[in-house]
């Protein structure tokens, strides 16, 4: 029996990597200029932040780089345990707080920060068999997007670009795809944590309308 298929059932989430359970049972204190966040991962399913318990899912992009997604409106937390730094979304579209993690790293690693280093990048991220998002990262917080298979329909999305470490970036886009693409309808928030050395990404797509999120993983190719 031929086991190969084109992943229709999974769509854009087809190549999603197995979940990362390394954080289970651990607590991390993130400190920025503005706030202190205590992320307590109770087990493989639940995390507590600010007294609120939420279900979470996590993927890791590097040996010590964990991308965590949780909460009602999807809080993104990217923890770089080797460098001892983190980026955590604040709840407003494209807004992140940049923190040090107590007890990790030497304390002198550069904090994540908004960046314009990604400007002029043109890439196609594949998330399944012939299912991709094509991005052109523009200046002024914009991104030109195409979703397979409708290469004729282009959208310009508001974008936030964060440099996490050398070769590693976070991109957040807030825009729905046109109708009849491989992106499920209503999923208007896309967060990708990208490794430009290995050309790999992990991330999350979120629908505030359906109140549903799904994790994605993929690889990059020239468009």
């Amino acid at each position: 029996m031929n086991k190969t298929h084109d992943g229709t059932n999974y769509g854009m989430t087809q190549y999603r990597w197995p979940l990362d359970f390394e954080l289970a049972g651990r607590t991390f204190t993130l400190r920025s200029d503005k706030a202190v966040y205590e992320l307590a991962f109770q087990d493989r399913e639940f995390v507590e932040l600010g007294g609120v318990l939420s279900q979470y899912e996590a993927l890791k992009l590097d040996a010590d780089l964990h991308a965590v997604f949780f909460g009602e409106t999807i809080t993104t937390a990217v923890l770089d345990l080797a460098a001892g730094v983190a980026a955590i979304s604040t709840g407003e579209a494209g807004q992140y707080d940049f923190c040090r993690i107590d007890g990790f790293g030497s304390g002198d690693a550069a904090l994540p920060a908004y960046t314009d280093e990604m400007t002029d990048t043109h890439v196609r991220w594949y998330f399944g068999c012939e299912r991709y998002m094509e991005h052109e990262y523009l200046a002024d917080g914009k991104c030109r997007c195409v979703w397979s298979p409708r290469t004729d329909r282009l959208r310009v999305a508001p974008a936030a670009y964060v440099k996490l470490a050398e070769g590693k970036y976070l991109v957040e886009l807030n825009r729905c795809s046109p109708l009849h693409t491989d992106m499920p309808q209503g999923f208007s928030k896309i967060v990708l944590v990208q490794d430009w050395v290995h050309l790999l990404t992990v991330g999350c797509i979120y629908s505030p309308v359906l109140n549903e999120f799904r994790l994605v993983s993929g690889y990059a190719m020239e468009p």
């Binding site: 043109h122 430009w196 290995h198």
Partner: peptide, 10 residues
């Protein structure tokens, strides 16, 4: 820069 040209090992 276009990060597709990011310097990376073989």
């Amino acid at each position: 820069m276009n990060l597709m040209q990011y310097p990376r090992p073989e």
